[in-house]
Write a protein that binds this DNA or RNA. Structure first.
Lengths: 118, 118
DNA sequence: TTATATAATTTCCAAGTGGAAACTAATGGC
DNA sequence: GCCATTAGTTTCCACTTGGAAATTATATAA
């Protein structure tokens, strides 16, 4: 796969004239917590409570909303184990795992550009 | 640069335990139009009106807000040419250009995963 | 004299988003 | 009988975001 700078810029310019994959991706990674949920699941399947705890505990409603949206877009699967109390496990699909490259680039950029407001 | 899948996942898992570069990047690419403004500027400096027209014309206030935020974070520079009528040109900084890798991964993912809701 | 062009800024408002708190369901343990 | 547990759902509310419209500034053109 060709990934040198000049080639990237050429393809990004071409995409601007079409529908644009960037916009499609932004539509999937939409909402305040969505990208971070994907990041959590990259290290393996997780239960509802584990995801919530890892993210500094946003409200249950927020997590549920985001998980539902990701499920509808086939980024994650949801498995309910009919036990008491209930156990629900979320796991990335193949499409979901393929977001790793984006997350990885975000990680690198963020680490190389720490906050520096004057 | 090591970018195979296993190595990426290992580093993403490690980052989860620190502050996290992903969150830092998300803070920069925040807001509905921010990422698309960066995409526009990757192909070269642009005037205010050009950016607005390229983005299906969101309100002037919205564009101004986003451009100001990007300027404060040193992702873009703003150059005013004291002419009548005024001309203002926005251009990516080095830090701004270095976001190209993220945008490129987003482009590829978006093109390889078209919408497929049932 | 008045319209035009460009890049804003300001005010006001509608819609969207996320959070808090209360409630549910079902079973096992005390 | 009552409580704890897990993963929600529901209702309501506050805050944020973005958009519309009016306004500004100023030299040039008609």
């Amino acid at each position: 796969m060709e990934t040198n700078g000049a080639e990237q810029l050429k393809r990004l310019a071409a995409a601007r004239r079409r529908g644009c994959g960037v916009e499609r991706t932004l539509a999937v990674l939409d909402g305040k917590w969505t990208t971070l949920i994907v990041r959590e699941l990259l290290s393996g399947p997780k239960r509802f409570g584990e995801i919530r705890a890892a993210l500094d505990s946003p409200s249950a409603k927020t997590i549920t909303d985001r998980l539902r949206a990701l499920e509808h877009q086939r980024i994650i699967t949801r498995t309910v184990y009919p036990e008491i109390p209930p156990r629900v496990v979320y796991e990335l699909t193949g499409d979901g795992h393929s977001l790793a490259g984006i997350l990885y680039e975000m990680l690198i950029w963020g680490e190389e550009h720490p906050v520096s407001e004057p």
